[in-house]
Amino acid sequence: MPVTFELNGRSTTVDVSPETPLLWVLRDTLNLTGTKYGCGIAACGACTVHIDGEAARSCVYPISSVSAKRVTTIEGLSMDRSHPVQEAWIEAQAPQCGYCQSGQIMTAVAFLKKTPSPTPQQVDAAMSDNICRCGTAQRIRKAVLHASELMQAQGGAR
């Protein structure tokens, strides 16, 4: 059964087995490998994408339920790294190995849309859905708070 959805602003149709998680469709079928596999049970956040603007764990999201929805992956955020969250990540030099960072960034973007001026405690609560085994927590906390400032300066969320 073909499934049609909007992916990073473009209408996309795939024909795969309907229970296939969105993660593997992105990675194996569509060659969008920025979204990572980390656990397959929505426990680590490495596969975080936006579905209709909300952060979602693509590893447990069957492709059949993506039909007609709007999906944004890290590749759709901005390829010129101009999104304020990307800018803040670069300024903080947050990544170490980098594997979890797509998911971290996608979680942060969705969070800041809802909570444009978070407290550090709110940042921690939101980012606790994502695991970084390298231990970049302190830089991530700093980057999210800084991204919030950048977005305020630029006149609101993107």
Partner: peptide
Amino acid sequence: PIVDLNDIVTGRGVFGM
């Protein structure tokens, strides 16, 4: 800055996966 920083924040870094 690490040479892979831009690739990592745009999802372009190439890992074994």
